[in-house]
Structure formats: C-alpha cells, structure tokens
Design a protein around this nucleic acid. Structure first.
Lengths: 344, 344
DNA sequence: TTTTAATATGAAATCGATTTCATAAATCAA
DNA sequence: TTGATTTATGAAATCGATTTCATATTAAAA
C-alpha cells in the first residue's frame, strides 16, 4: 500500500510551487506550456491521481449527479438511465443512483442522502405516492438544480422532461375508436402521478370527441405489473358486457392480460382490440403483436441529463433557467393486436 | 444561498470545542451523554449537515461503491442493480454506476474514473471483449476490494458471484435430450466470457453423457439481442436438416427466434423444442411459454453487495478474504416450448 | 528609455472534518 | 490521604487541493 502522490510531491520533485502544479493539472492558461508539459509528464510518471475530496472541499463542486428512480429493474427506467449515463460520462460527471421503490418515505431518505453527498444536480422520477415535493426544497434553497423526468411535479417550478401523455393516450384511444371500438376499458396506475392522470384525460377527451359517453366503470386502476395483468383480464371476463377495446398503460401488463384473455377463448383483436404503452421489447414478441406508444426512454435520459448539465455551468443563470417543460415526441405504433380493418 | 453550518459554528454556539462536536456527532463513547444530546439538538436546530468531503479527505473513506456493468438497459442487469442498491442503501453506501457498453476500452476508462473517485470497493461485470483484468490492479494495489459478478475473471484472485453455468446448460441440454431431441443447436455469446464458455461446456457434457456426437456446426455465436433472433431463426430454417432442439442463451433472443420460426410454419415444440435462459418476464408471455433457467439477478446483486461490504470493514482481513467464488442456485423451469411428452 | 501591460510563478490562507496528544476533573484502590 | 485510573474535553496538526494576493519577469507601447 504505497503512499499517494500529491501535488506537493510533484512540486518538490520539479522545484516549482504546488500552486503551479495545481494550475498546470487544471490546464490553467497562466502556466507556461513547457512547465505544463513537464508537470504532466512528472504526474504521469509518478502515478499521481487527483484527490477529489480535497478538490471538492475547496472548490465546492462534486461532479456528482444524483438520480432517484422509482425502480431500477424496469425496462423503461433502465433505458432512461442508460441515456443519462452516456451523457454524464461523456461530460465527466459521476452518477449516484438510488431507487425509491415507489415509497415516498424512501424517496425522502434518498433525497437527504443525495443532499448530504452534495450532488451538483438531481434528476428525479417521482414515487407513485409522493404528494408533494417539499423534500427537494433544500436543494433549491442551495441553488442546486433539480430536474424531473417522466413522473414530474406539476407545481414545482423545476424543469420537467416528459412526453405528451394526454395526446398519446388520446391517439391510442382514437385509434381504437377508429377500429370500431365503442366500449373501451382503460387500465392505468395511480393518478397522483401526472403520467396516468394525463393519460386518463386523453382517454376521456378522445371519447368525448367521438361522442362516446365516459363510463367510470371502464377505468381500472392497477399496479400495472405482470401479475396484475391476469387480475385485470379476469375482471374483464367477468363483466356483464364484454368490452370491445382495451387500452393498458403498460406493455408487460397488456401482454399478460392478452395471454389470460386468449386462454379464456377471447380473440384479439376481433373480440377485444388491445393497445399497450411503452414499446417494450415484449410488444414485438407477443402474439398478436401489440399496438403501443413508443416512449423514448433513452432519449429522455439524454435530454434530461444534457439539460441538467447545462443548468450547472454558471453561464446558465440566464434564460435557460426558464425552461419549464421539455416535451419529447412519442408515437403510436399500430400492430395487429388492434388492427381490425386493414385500411389505414 | 445561506451559508453552510459547520462543526465550528456549533462549537462556538455551545461553548465547546470542535473536537467534541465532531466526536459527539460520530457517537464517540468518550463524550458525555448530556453534552452529546446538547450537540445533537443544536446540530438539528441549526440545520447542520456533515461535509462528506472534509470527512473523506481526512478519514480516507468515501462510502461510495463503484459498479461497472456492460449495459444498464438490460433486464437482468437492472435486477442485479436493484438488489445491490437495496443492500448498499441500507448499509449507508452510495452507488456510483457506469456502463461499459461491452467495450473493454470504456471499461478501462470507467475503472480509472472510479479509481480517481476513490470508491471504497468495486463491483464489476465484464465487457464481452475484455481479455484481461489488469486495469483493476490499481485497486488491488491500494487494497480496494474488487468483486466480479455474473461475468467474472477466471484468473484474477478476486471473489466472483456466479451461477453454475455449466450445470445449468447441462440441465437444459439434458432436458431437451430427454424430450427426444437428437440434433440440438446451441446459441450463445462470445466465449471470452465465462458465462458462455461454461454453458458451451455444459452443452457438450450433456451430449457426451448421452452419446450424442458434438457437432461444431450446431453452435451459433450471436449478440443475443432481439434482432439477432430473427437471423438465427433464418440460419436454422436454411439448414439442410432441421434441428429438433434449440437452446438459446437468452430469453429475449429465444423469443424472437421462436416468433420467426413460427412464421415459417415450424411448430414449437413438436418440430423444434426450445429452451431459453434467464427467466425474463418475456418467457412467461410468449407462446408457447418458454422453458428457461431461472437466473437470480436480484439475489445475485444482494449477495455480491453484502459480500463486498463485508470485505470493507477492517474486521475482515482474515478468512473472509479467501472466498473465491460464490455460486448461487439456478433452476431449470420447464414450460411448454420444450415439453413433448407430458410425463416428467 | 521609460511606462504599461501581459505573462508566469509562489506564499500562505482556506475548505471542514478527524485525529493525535495533552490535560483537567472525577472516581477508585490502597 | 495519596497515587492510579477512568472520564471528558480541548489545542493544534492534518488531509490535499484551490484560490487570493503579491511579485518577478518579459514584452509591448509611448
């Protein structure tokens, strides 16, 4: 366990001051190129590595960005993270990642940890039972930017990166209506989350615009996980009148739903046309292939991270700060699970 | 942007020394309980938060654990991460996560960053083209534990957490043979990775034990992603003799393979019995349901992280260090994609 | 040639906690 | 009662980089 090399060691070796070494290593313009080269070479040769803690302590920057997601093991979230990691890594930032497991309490604890770790910025997708976002105020008070993605806080004054969930749900529902559906069930998660609240709105608007009365019994709230799909299918099967359309807010759940419906002898899409959400890999592999909305996870991660990093430099104190919502393009992908008439 | 409270502020306020404050906040036994309480109260009331950088700088501990995975957006990897996060968070560690994107170069760069960030420990699942693990030597030289999981380095002297891939592949192949298959194709990834090398071994052993000659033309190397499934299916369809068994080292790939095979009029399992690997959600949702090996990702994450954290305390310098490989239980899950005779 | 500006370097303070060493006070044993 | 021990506290050094302020040198302008 050989001792760490510090700038003092380099300075002594080369007969210059630690100040100059520090400046050289940070590529400060006021250091002579020849001196700089000499210092770089010595640093490399001596196996120097910067002590981030000393550096952070003095400069009050950490180069760490915190991320809080509801679950790490979600296909969508992991795409987002992949996008974020790419951008952050290229820009020289580290990621500190934690999951709230959909618990507002754990989200608060995670936020506190991030706060104590003094992350330079924070990216959050909210837990499903988070009612308010006061636990992020400490960051804002300190001037640390907080940016929400996917599941955003409507009233926070922070930038949010989202898709237009209302429009996407509108399009999905409209598509079902155009395929002849008149009795469409919508399966969604907790409407405390903007994502589901907005989709419900889109669903309602589409019905309205096509003069189909909204029936609250056609809305099923669910965890949207795999097991839930089976329950939902059973609920549907037990209804007095079978619906002719099904719009599920999640592909995996829709897929498991389809499976159970098929086992009960219901034909997809002839009896029930089904639309999912997310464009997960599974939507392309189940039978029939699932109509869904492409949700650009990787891109969302990239955009959110880029935007946050832009907020960090002190060059940003101006207009950029005013960005409130960044909306990404999403797209309905029509596949056979909902296609009844072959005309478009 | 109000100023940060430090232990000096608390000390001055209470008329004690910073030393005592530091000790109290770290729950040092040599501080009077009453003084301790007084300090705790003041800290809380004044909104004190410890400066981790000052602390790390002096104590040379970071409470950060680095993780390098090949890809963040992989169903298996994200389960592992979820397990790791749970354990680490409960134990008060932060995670710094990065992805190598299957590039040995990027893995090296990530390792260097982790090294400079002075993580207390490192968890790695290797990139597919990583030939040697010398880039982790810097950690070992400094006494920082490095632990591999899933994709491990055979010759590194570091602990690895794995499943018995040879046995799992043996069981899968044996199962196919028992279902009457005599001409079994094995699809796998780069055999530089222990995971695939071991499975190939298991496949061969099973053939050998059942007196089926091994034919290298029956081994297909692939990226194992979704698109690859289609290519593989086409390769199989174009073979002179159609195989009667197919063992794919990844569920998503197997699923997409099955889809293409079915479209070509091949019946599963009657014409070709198929077995996947991982027990991803998709294996339960495609048709026919996919026989697969349950791969305990979440558990692997938990075990790896627990083990690493155990290595960290100085109480561990002893026997624990000698653990070389931790093998988790995996299990063949038989479903209809391979079941020809209904007897077990 | 003098003055001014630009270039290059260094001394010392600083960031905020931890840790070593010393010591005062209280408790115990002889 | 005295010396030994325990308990509780503080002064000051330390971790390793950054940053402020000062200064020496060189180049450019007057």
């Amino acid at each position: 366990m050989n001792k760490e090399i510090t700038i003092y060691d380099i300075a002594k070796d080369l007969g210059v001051s630690p100040t100059t070494v520090s400046r050289a290593l940070n590529d400060h313009p006021a250091v002579n190129v020849k001196t700089k080269q000499k210092i770089f070479d010595a640093a490399k040769q001596m196996g120097y590595r910067s002590n981030v803690f000393a550096s952070n302590l003095r400069s009050k920057k950490t180069n760490n960005i915190g991320i809080i997601v509801p679950r790490l093991n979600s296909s969508f979230q992991s795409s987002v993270l992949a996008g974020m990691e790419k951008v952050a890594n290229d820009a020289g930032f580290n990621l500190i990642i934690s999951q709230s497991l959909e618990s507002s309490e754990k989200e608060k604890a995670n936020a506190r940890t991030m706060f104590n770790s003094r992350v330079d910025g924070l990216l959050v997708s909210l837990a499903s039972n988070t009612e308010n976002v006061e636990h992020f105020n400490a960051f804002l008070d300190k001037g640390t930017p907080v940016l929400f993605f996917d599941r955003v806080a409507s009233n926070s004054g922070c930038t949010g990166v989202v898709i237009d969930n209302t429009q996407a749900a509108y399009n999905a529902t409209k598509h079902l209506i155009e395929q002849g559906c008149k009795n469409i069930i919508h399966v969604l998660g907790n409407t405390k989350i903007n994502v589901y609240a907005d989709r419900l709105k889109g669903y309602k608007y589409a019905l309205m615009d096509h003069e189909i009365p909204f029936n609250s019994k056609n809305v099923i709230y669910s965890d949207l996980n795999e097991e839930a799909g089976e329950d939902i299918a059973n609920k549907i099967i037990n209804k007095k009148t079978l619906p002719d359309g099904l719009f599920v807010s999640n592909d995996a759940c829709a897929a498991s739903c389809i499976q159970t419906l098929k086992q009960a002898g219901i034909r997809i899409p002839e009896d029930i046309a089904v639309v999912g959400f997310n464009n997960d890999i599974i939507s392309r592999l189940i039978e029939p292939n699932l109509t869904t909305t492409h949700y650009p996870g990787y891109e969302m991660g990239e955009v959110a991270m880029k935007n946050l990093i832009n907020h960090l430099g002190d060059n940003s104190k101006g207009v950029l700060q005013n960005t409130n919502t960044i909306t990404l393009r999403s797209e309905l992908i029509v596949r056979s699970s909902s296609l009844r008439q072959k005309t478009t």
